[in-house]
Design a protein around this nucleic acid. Structure first.
Lengths: 339, 339
DNA sequence: TTTTAGCACTCTTTTTAATTGACTGCTAAT
DNA sequence: ATTAGCAGTCAATTAAAAAGAGTGCTAAAA
């Protein structure tokens, strides 16, 4: 494929991303390649169509990129520096926000990306159950109520309120705290399970209900933690592809049964951007969308994975530029700043 | 206004709520009043229009209810028992869910209402800043990190993580705990303010930064608590009125600048249902919608306010029935069950 | 050999006109 | 007081015509 055809393909994708309308040979000449004639463009377009990079919607329409076309565009034709000074400033402001919790940073990052790219953005925090426990604290909030606080080795804090049907004493709480820490320090969160319940019960012979409740509530909290965080849900509704009821419905469905998105996000590879275009998504309902995921981190602390979902003609250049830039910022800040 | 006219008006509103189409005299005869002729209905409709309860969309169209018509319908023509056995069952199931936090109960109630009525539902918890403090606990999570836990007199628990730029000792934390409790027990949450900061500083002469940070973070948490909780945002999009771009846009806007909804919810009167039909809403953007709010409670514990927003032709009967029923359930449960 | 002007052809979109259908309001009869 | 029946109105639907935006191909020019 010669250089001119590549330029034309890029022009077609760029134009289609901008307008969502099939691109005609004339448009290419006027906006991208003023030195060749539309007939020449037409010849090249015929060839590009033959080898499968572009398609027609009907006999006499302009061309739209095919899945293969988008793929080539993303892999070879794209420069990732599509970010303005204003945007850099804005990102800087947002990332300055002081957060007390790693999760909050992920949320801020998520909403920043959504605001700049205008696409729906989802995220999950770092996988809770694999994190190692540094310390567990139990704080009595009443004779039948406890708060469990777990500090992990990477510094995240998880807490939950636990209520009992019977009284518990400070002394019991102290013993429980000692025993939990003794057994769990340095171990991953998913060590809090049924066998642990039996172990603790055998050691203490306290009311099995209290021990059971504690373990169950902590498990519930860990599971709750893996919830999808979602920002900019309705941003997409302005897009022309959402005039199709089918497309809109699929979109809403995919976000609702959030297992789908969770699966995709969990597939992320550390510090690597993954791009799934249309059919490349495993889920049938995503066939009209592209998903870009990025598992971000500070140093080697996993920060969870962010995913952007938009139409196949999403602005790949902008999205990927912003992701790369934010990732860089997070790591730079870490180098200069706080511990 | 005679009995027959009232029946016809009710029929028109009911029919319009169901179909969203102007109601013709023939429809009334066929579905509601088989023993009178359509000409008679037409005569009555002309009169109902003259006195302002119904309107035409054009010369030869059927009638739709006017704001005044809805008002009469809601005030006088409606029975509030529009709830099926399945729905009662479903509500029962949902309300059985064990919760550790009052806020979670509000969330469950909110989502239940949204699921049954198919309308977008919003809620706020009980006004935090007026709640009285029962106890404050500070738990050290590291030499520069603290968790503040506040238990209020009505039993809600609020907690936040606080990070410092300098070290703090367990002894300092103990003193702070004593001082905070001494000063604040029995006082409302909004007593945690600038004057308190000065008082504590004068007593202790600890690093002003630490004291300042603690107070600010707690204030931030309290403020955060007043966030709108929103369920079923896109339920409305299937309704025919949302085909109008203007209506859809207004709806999205109102929910986004959530101050509007917060204001409305805060206007609630304990255990009373408020209904705002179309123009009765203060906010211009709500002119095509109706909002129904209900400030619910268990015994005399305020549980916050729930609001339902839907088209003017919303199913008032169902919405209000469900609200009343849930309110009853909550209070009955409380009588029989747990403390 | 590559590029281009030009024209016929195709398909969609827009515009216009004609028809149908759902109502009401009124009049005259019951 | 009610109702049958019919003329009149407007919106919605259907049909037909015109306009417009493209392409592909051919033959000439570079």
């Amino acid at each position: 494929m010669d250089e001119r055809k590549k330029k034309i393909l890029r022009a077609i994708v760029d134009e289609y991303i901008e307008t969502a309308e099939p691109v005609s040979s004339n448009t290419i000449v006027q906006k991208y390649e003023p030195n060749i004639s539309s007939a020449t463009v037409r010849n090249d377009m015929a060839e590009l169509e033959r080898i499968g990079f572009i398609e027609k919607t009907h006999t006499s329409s302009g061309r739209v990129p095919s899945a293969k076309g988008y793929r080539l565009y993303v892999d070879e034709l794209l420069k990732y520096d599509d970010i303005s000074v204003e945007e850099i400033k804005y990102i800087g402001e947002k990332l300055k926000t002081k957060v007390n919790q790693l999760e909050d940073l992920t949320k801020i990052t998520t909403s920043t990306i959504s605001e700049i790219t205008h696409y729906t953005t989802v995220s999950v925090g770092p996988e809770s159950s694999k994190q190692n426990i540094e310390e567990i604290k139990f704080v009595m909030l009443g004779s039948r109520m406890l708060m469990a606080i777990i500090v992990t080795e990477i510094g995240t804090i998880k807490e939950t309120i636990i209520k009992f049907d019977e009284d518990i004493t400070q002394e019991q709480v102290n013993t429980l705290t000692y025993l939990f820490n003794n057994k769990l320090r340095g171990k991953p969160l998913d060590m809090i399970d049924k066998p642990l319940e039996e172990y603790i019960f055998n050691e203490l012979h306290y009311s099995i209900n209290i021990i059971k409740t504690i373990i169950e509530e902590i498990q519930k909290m860990i599971k709750n933690d893996e919830k999808l965080y979602l920002e900019g849900r309705n941003k997409n509704f302005d897009l022309p592809e959402f005039k199709s009821l089918d497309v809109a419905r699929n979109f809403v469905n995919v976000l609702d049964e959030n297992d789908t998105m969770l699966d995709i996000l969990k597939n992320g590879v550390a510090n690597d951007i993954q791009i799934y275009i249309g059919d490349e998504n495993k889920n049938e309902e995503l066939k009209d969308f592209s998903v870009i995921t990025f598992k971000h981190s500070i140093g080697n602390k996993d920060l969870g994975t962010i995913g952007i979902i938009g139409p196949k003609r999403m602005n790949y250049s902008k999205v990927i530029s912003v992701m790369k830039y934010i990732s860089k910022m997070l790591n730079d800040d870490n180098m200069n700043g706080k511990e």
